[in-house]
Amino acid sequence: MKGLALFAVVLTGALLLYATGDFPAWGSVHSPANGGELSSHYIENVRTETKVPNIVTAVLADYRSYDTMFETVVVFVAGIAIIALLRDFGNGSRGYPPALANNLPEEPDLIITQTCNLVIPVLQIFALYVLAHGHYSPGGGFQGGVMLGASYILIALANGVEVAMKAMSERKIMLLAATGILIYSGTGLICLLLGENFLDYHVLSRILPTDPIMARSHAILIVETGVAVTVAAIMFSIYANLATRGTLKGGL
């Protein structure tokens, strides 16, 4: 069996290497992916079509916004799947081994909690900065959302999951995660209700005080905010469920 597996791995590796010989030169401006009709169009026209300085953001959240919406749904699905499989609703129905005993010390460690108190606000502000700055630099909803979620995980690490759950209850996690996707898909739905195709942002200029091209730029910020909300809520939810074996009690 091991030999067979090794054979399959070697065969796959050989196939991949065989194909590599045929690749265009590394970084060549004439390769189809760099200099093809599609990439040239993006590079030349992003500023006039969307007014977004960062080409990656424009491709991600406008030209291919439908993909990004479903990537956010993937995050949402991961969160729900973990709750559906791991969450212990108190009747032991999943039959997993019992949760770890509450191993938190009586008094939270002063140095750790104070450091976290210092770091967390900065982390959250920086997360919002990363989110809002996606138009100009690397960043955007996914990165900002992860940092926002990490700030709640930090609270849970320092004080125990239950303290963090006071700020972000299970009910709130679900509402926030769904709200994030609703912000994204709702933006698309408004475009649809205004008579254009799904996610065709330019029509939002009728309800936003801007011209159709700037409306695309603004809409990108709206949908990125939706992504960040979902990602932050699901990040924390996954941590809380995994760390406590689905009981949401005690700490790591």
Binding site: H41, D62, Y63, Y66, L199
Partner: peptide, 20 residues
């Protein structure tokens, strides 16, 4: 064909798609 985000195909004839 249904164009999501309303990005029309580019170029002559069938052209290429810049959206999804």
């Amino acid at each position: 064909i249904y164009l999501i985000s309303g990005w029309e195909r580019l170029g002559e004839g069938k052209g290429i798609s810049i959206g999804i």
